[in-house]
């Protein structure tokens, strides 16, 4: 009898392991299904005005989804114009900041004696809140151009640049220096010059870390662009439109821009993941 029980237990344990293996398929399904269910439930609660009851609000401050959709459709040209402004701030800042951060990381990795301070400075920038530097930079850039649109752009881009540079610099430095044991000895045995070691070992080694940085800094660049638009002088940009419309109590329009901001964020992330799956395929 006892023997039988033990056999059953062993049988059970085996099937558990098998189940973990088989569940891979289910894991894939649930990662798609859960967000869909969540979305459907949210839409239901929203359209059925149940959310409104829970939060003690009305369809004026929290307009129904079809109304938001209508406004988005009717104001497509204006929304696209504002999206263009926000996206260009985010992209320009992201590119300049990431390159700058990477450059600082390379210098720190190549010349640790004098370069190590670089990532430390970037780390300091990383801890500065956007809401704190955005207004300050807006003031600093006041004399840069006679055009309000241009000086406003520059100030926003600088904020995004700082945030992205910090993120890229810290991650890239790890990627350039955290190298498999003996790799550097291997390059030394073949008398590889420093730039060859950089080019053939350090740079390729840092690629996964670059994506780690981008997974944070791509959404952060959009968020930063939107937040710094709040403080900007010039009133173009998705973030600024959210603020303006709330101030004017045009909540439906404000929500249309909030939805736009969400779509920009999701689109950027999807593009990034597509790049990652192509470029990092050989690393995994």
């Amino acid at each position: 009898m006892e023997k039988e029980i033990r056999l059953q237990k062993i049988g059970r344990r085996k099937s558990l392991r098998q189940r973990a293996k088989e569940s891979k398929k289910w894991q894939k399904i649930t990662t798609v299904v859960y967000p869909l269910i969540f979305g459907a439930v949210l839409v239901g609660l929203w359209q059925g005005q149940i959310l409104h009851r829970w939060f003690h609000t009305d369809t004026f401050t929290l307009p129904l989804l079809n109304k938001i959709g209508e406004i988005m459709r009717d104001n497509m040209d204006k929304i696209l114009e504002n999206t263009g402004a926000t996206v260009s701030v985010a992209v320009i800042g992201l590119v300049i900041g990431s390159l700058l951060g990477y450059l600082v990381a390379v210098l720190a990795a190549l010349f640790p004696k004098i370069g190590m301070g670089g990532p430390a400075v970037l780390g300091a920038f990383a801890s500065v809140p956007v809401v704190a530097i955005a207004p300050v930079l807006n003031n600093w850039t006041k004399d840069l151009s006679d055009e309000a649109s241009i000086r406003s752009m520059i100030s926003k881009i600088i904020v995004v640049t700082l945030i992205c540079a910090a993120d890229m610099g810290l991650n890239a430095y790890r990627g350039l220096t955290e190298i498999k044991p003996f790799s550097e000895d291997l390059m030394a045995i073949y008398a590889a010059p420093k730039r060859t070691t950089l080019w053939k070992l350090r740079l390729p080694n840092s690629l996964p870390y670059v994506f780690t940085a981008l997974k944070v800094s791509v959404p952060a660049s959009i968020m930063t662009a939107i937040v710094s638009e709040y403080f900007a002088e010039y009133i173009t940009g998705v973030g600024r439109q959210i603020r303006e419309n709330i101030v004017l109590a045009q909540y439906a329009t404000a929500w249309a821009y909030i939805a736009t901001a969400c779509l920009i964020g999701i689109a950027a992330y999807v593009i990034l993941m597509a790049f990652q799956s192509i470029l990092l395929r050989r690393y995994s």
Partner: peptide
């Protein structure tokens, strides 16, 4: 001799580059 690239070295671990 090393700078003339006359050495080969096999380390304890296979130091192969993943990429």
């Amino acid at each position: 001799v090393r700078l003339q690239q006359k050495f080969g070295f096999v380390f304890q671990q296979p130091v192969l580059f993943d990429w």
